[in-house]
Each structure stands twice: as C-alpha cells, then as structure tokens.
Design a protein around this nucleic acid. Structure first.
Lengths: 343, 343
DNA sequence: CTTGGATGCTAAATCGCTTTAGTTGCCGGA
DNA sequence: TCCGGCAACTAAAGCGATTTAGCATCCAAG
C-alpha cells in the first residue's frame, strides 16, 4: 500500500485537497466539523507530510547545515569539538531541528556545498566553524543570503551573526598569571596561523609580553594535531635557553606536550609549566593535571544553537553574542620556574 | 535575481526542459553539440539542482539518518561515540553523503522520526545504534522498508543488516585473563540491562565464571554515566568481601571507578584490577593506565558507513558483518590480586 | 523508392503539497 | 426584498525537477 497523500485523504473525506491542507496546517478555511473529520482520517490513514513536497513550496527544512573542512578523525579526537557538537544538538533538538552534517576536503568544497544546500533549500541555515583570517566563506554566505551563524569573532564575520568568546582576554589572563609566577620565557604552541582565533591569541601574547617586558614570547604554529604539538614541544625544549612555560592552543596538544616533556626528562611543573586552551577530561586526568582555560563547551554549543534558531526564525536578524571568557583553572602543571634564570 | 531553474536554461538555449534535464544528467536523448551548449549555459547561469524537486520525483536524498535517544551530553562525553561518529562521517563523506542527525527524548519519538523521514524520503537509509533486547525499532524499520544498518548483534536485528563485534568473545578473553592472574572475585559494572550488548557481556561473564568455578561474578547495572559508574564502584568496594577485579562496560566508567578506588584508599592494581571495555585516550593517560579492550573505533565507523552505502545502493541487500573482536591491551591497572584470599 | 529504425528533440504528465482566486450559500441589516 | 459580506469550500496554478509518449528527420537496407 502506497504512502497516503492529501489527495487520498481528500477523496476519502469527500473534500478538496485544499481543504485538507488547511485542516492539517491549522489554518482558517475549513469548518470545525470538517477539520476534525479530516484530522481523524489523516490519523487513520497514517498520513505524514512529505517534506520534499513542502520544501518545493518554500517551507522550512527543519534542519541546519554544518559543513566541516577537516580530516574526519579530528571530530573524534578533539573533546572541544565533540562537546560543541553535542551542545549544538541539544539546543537544536529541543525544537526538533536536525543537524545536516558533511565533511569535505577543503574550503572550496565547503563553499560549493553551501551553494548547493542553500539553493536546494536543504537546510534553513548554516553553522560556520573554524573562522579564518579574511575568510572566503563569509562572502559566499552573505551572497547566498541564507541565515548563518559564525563561531568566532569578534570581527571577521562580515554581516553574519556570530557567537564567540574573548580569546584575547583569555590569553592575557594566562600570560599575566605566568608572569606573576615569575616566568619570563613563555612559548605558545599555536594552531594554524590562518585561524582568526590563533591570530588573536598570538597577538595577545606578543602585546602583553611587550608590556611586561618578558625575555621571550614565541608562538609556533601547528595543525592542532597531537603529533605536531609534540614536535613543536620537542623543538622548543631543545633550544639552548628553553622556555619555562608553554601555552598550548588545545588540550590535545598540551597532553602531547606533557608526554614529550616526560620523555625528555623535563619535569612539569618544576622545570616547565604547561597551560592548555580548552579544558576537558583530558586535562583533568592527565598526570600532572593540566592547568587550563575552562569554559562550559556544552553550554556554549547550546547557546550557539539558540542564536541559530533565532536567526532562522527571523531572517535579517543579526546577533553578535559574546559568551563568557574562558577562566583559567589552575591545576598541577603550573608553578614558579625552579631556577630563577638559567635551568 | 532568482535561482535559475532548468526552465531558464531551456529558454536561453532554445530547447525544452526535457532536453536540459537529459543533458545535465548525462543521459542519452540529446546530441553532443546541444549537450555541450546546455552544460555551458548551466554553468554560466550558476545553476544547481534543487534536491527537494528531485526528491519529489523519488531521487536519492544523499543523506543517511541517525536518530539518537540519549541525553545529548553523552555524545560529547563518550569517546567511543565521538570516534564512531567521525568514522561514520569519514566513510559517508567519501561519497558526499551527509549525515542527518537528530537527538530525541525516547525510543517512541525515535520511531516516529523514522516514519517521518522515511515517508518524506528525507534520507536514503538509517543508522540504528544502541540495539536493545527485543528492540521495537527493528520492526518499525522493517515495516518502513527503508535501508537500515544496525550497530550491534549478532542477532536481535531481524532482517536488517548489521555490523557488530563479538562482545561475548571479548568478555571471555577478559575473564580468562583475570582468572589466569589469580582473580576469583570479579565484578562487572555493566550498562543498561536492556542493551543487547550488556546482556551478552553479562551472560558471557556468568558462563565463564561458572566453568572456571570462580567464587563470585556479579554484574551491576548502570546508565553508563560516570556518576553511576562511581556509585557502583563505591558499593562494590564497600562489600565485606570485595571483588579483586572490576570490568567496566566503558572507559568513562572505568575512569570514574579508578577515581573512587583512589578516594577509598584501594590501591590499583595491587588491591584491585581494573579493565575497561572500549579503549580511548582516557584509558591511556589515566594513572595508572587502564587495561582495556581495544579496537579501532574510527575504522569501525568507516566500515559501518561502507555497509550503509552498499545497502542504500542495492535495496534488499542484507549484510551481516562481524568486525574484529576487541583485543585486550594490558596496561598498568591489572595485576595478580595481592592477598591470595582475604585482603 | 519505400520502409524501418535510430536519433534528437518536444510536450505534457507527474511527484505531494501550498496557496490564490474564485464560487456558493447563508445571514443580517437596510 | 435585496444586497453586502463572511464563512466554507473548490479548482487550479505553481514549486523544480524527471520521465514518458510521441513527433520529425535522416540514413541505411531492401
């Protein structure tokens, strides 16, 4: 037996398709008695709307799109991302909005998918992550006119809405903390230089280091992987005058760095202090536990979802939401440098 | 300027819509010259297919559905799930198939979503996780006739395809290992009793314990959360004759159990051996590192995706794929029980 | 010189639903 | 009594593609 359509219902009840459509969508145009009868028959026949047919008419897709240009494996590896995703889902599913997810090779493919999904009205809006410096996706999303919310900012997201945390402020607090402990050679194992948040953090470190007149404050770039995090750590610790503190742009890299320090016989926190951007179970159970910039990532995702839903509900709305600045949670991986100058 | 449709292209080229459709889909019915002209104009006009319109005609949705009846937070907390999801994505995105994801309250809502998505042809197939004993979703998916692949088995998945690992075999290997170390009181902090894999593991433990004539082999049930895992551990360790080894049904719970043991002054592995089902970075960096049943979850997800794509490509196909049995990786959390009988 | 079958194309139906423009019938007010 | 207006409903036109039936045209075989 074929899927019932409104035509079937109409025939059975003895009214027109239009009447059935009105009744099923709770809009005026049918009498109460007829409406009740239609609803009952629809239920009996086990009718369900055909979203494609609706979409053709321009209705909501009840889904938002998330396209990610990263190796798939990072999704499972990065607690931050996993947490974010679950928060996002939590917020969206409260309104029964699905997440349409696709992983692609690069940013070009990503924008192409934006065009496809937008023009096919497959999703009601887009979630954009990994905001880059002069990000080409911004222009595309603006041009498409589809509701979109950018993770990252402030700035760099054109006319699109965005949700962000203050990376600069967070980095400053870490540098101040380390400087107060007596550190004067601080290194920063950063992410990809094209990421806006990497740039903001790098700048913040440099600015504050200048003001505090620190001896050294380098940022080295990685691809966020644990292997590059480890390699960067190895290189930093092999320097003749090695840093006494390293700030990592993710918990995964901090953990890798901790491992390298152990291998090289560099004691944490006595000879090296370690701080991680992004907090998670990883930093908590590491040994020693890693001091980290912490925020409620799940809540962050949820908040993001709420902004997304608002923007979808009211196209043209532009929101620019600053969320709580990550707060430094001090654990066992940070301490005053052992030797005051040389090691 | 409106989105161009094939009608626009047809008009511009001076042919019929049908010809345009043929040309764009690479099927016979148009001459080479015309085809080339049409493709060129389509490109110029920046045309893209409207998936909703295609879907109305019964075409592929290029997406598979995943509906999860769990609290959203577990997605971010369980490394297994995160890894699985990323593997799944990796496999699907290789064919540009998106994942349509929704979290719901309970299994009833889940089946309702199956009905909606299936009848609206929103997705080409379903991924079903968390297989339960006498799972009501199986019947629904069979009835809907939509391609579906079940994570879990063997058995319990009706006529649907499935991908699974041998939980029984895995549990047996753990029990054998612990017994060989000299353990005679083994506890099992299990998951929800309605999960099929929980049942299989529980049975395996009981069976082998009987054959090995162990003194004790209890399974206690939890909801997989770290808090219930901790509570269960506390209860087990408070018994007058407490177990000398505990097998946890997840890495998250094992980690929680490790914490409880520490609090209670029970030394691991001297006074208590700990084994985790599911391996991840958590078990590796825990202190002591936790012996765990390990498998490549990312690869598992990828394999799952491949089966899914096969089943979608050839409806009616039924695949029942057994993947590699998780192998016990011995780390620091297991050792012979310190005192031979009492502690 | 005719016939048959490709080939290249068009016109129109179809998918399931929404929406607009009518149409009918009834009621109340002048 | 007649008209205006409203409520209830119908018919039909899209929405953007696919697909089928059919129509010329042309070429080759008989």
């Amino acid at each position: 037996m074929r899927r019932p359509t409104i035509a079937d219902i109409a025939e059975r009840v003895g009214v027109s398709k239009g009447a059935v459509s009105f009744a099923l969508n709770g809009r005026p145009g049918v009498g109460e008695a007829t409406r009740a009868r239609i609803l009952q028959v629809a239920k009996e026949m086990n009718w369900r709307p055909h979203s494609a047919a609706r979409a053709l008419g321009g209705a909501r897709a009840e889904a938002v799109g998330l396209v990610i240009a990263r190796p798939a494996s990072t999704l499972g590896v990065e607690p931050f991302f996993a947490q974010l995703l679950s928060g996002l889902q939590a917020g969206l599913s409260a309104q029964s909005v699905a997440l349409h997810l696709l992983i692609v090779e690069d940013v070009e493919a990503e924008t192409e998918v934006y065009r496809e999904w937008a023009s096919a009205h497959r999703v009601d809006g887009f979630v954009m992550v990994d905001l880059k410096v002069r990000d080409p996706r911004i222009g595309v999303l603006e041009e498409l006119g589809a509701p979109a919310v950018v993770l990252g900012g402030p700035g760099g997201h054109g006319n699109l809405s965005s949700v962000w945390a203050d990376d600069r402020e967070a980095m400053l607090s870490v540098v101040d903390y380390l400087a107060a402990l007596g550190h004067r050679r601080i290194a920063h194992v950063a992410g990809l230089p094209e990421f806006l948040h990497t740039q903001r953090r790098t700048r913040a470190l440099r600015d504050r280091a200048g003001r505090l007149d620190l001896e050294e404050a380098v940022s080295v770039h990685t691809d966020f992987s644990d292997s590059e995090g480890a390699a960067a750590t190895r290189a930093l610790l092999s320097r003749p005058r090695r840093p006494t503190a390293i700030v990592y742009d993710s918990d995964v890299m901090a953990l890798a760095g901790l491992g390298v320090a152990g291998e090289m016989g560099v004691k944490v926190p006595d000879e090296l202090s370690v701080v991680a951007f992004d907090d998670s179970v990883l930093t908590r159970i590491a040994h020693p536990a890693i001091s980290a910039l912490s925020r409620d990532t799940f809540a962050f995702g949820k908040q993001f979802a709420e902004v997304m839903l608002e923007v979808v509900a009211e196209p043209g709305l532009r929101r620019d939401v600053k969320t709580a600045t990550p707060r430094l949670v001090v654990r066992e991986s940070t301490a005053p440098p052992r030797a005051w100058q040389d090691d």
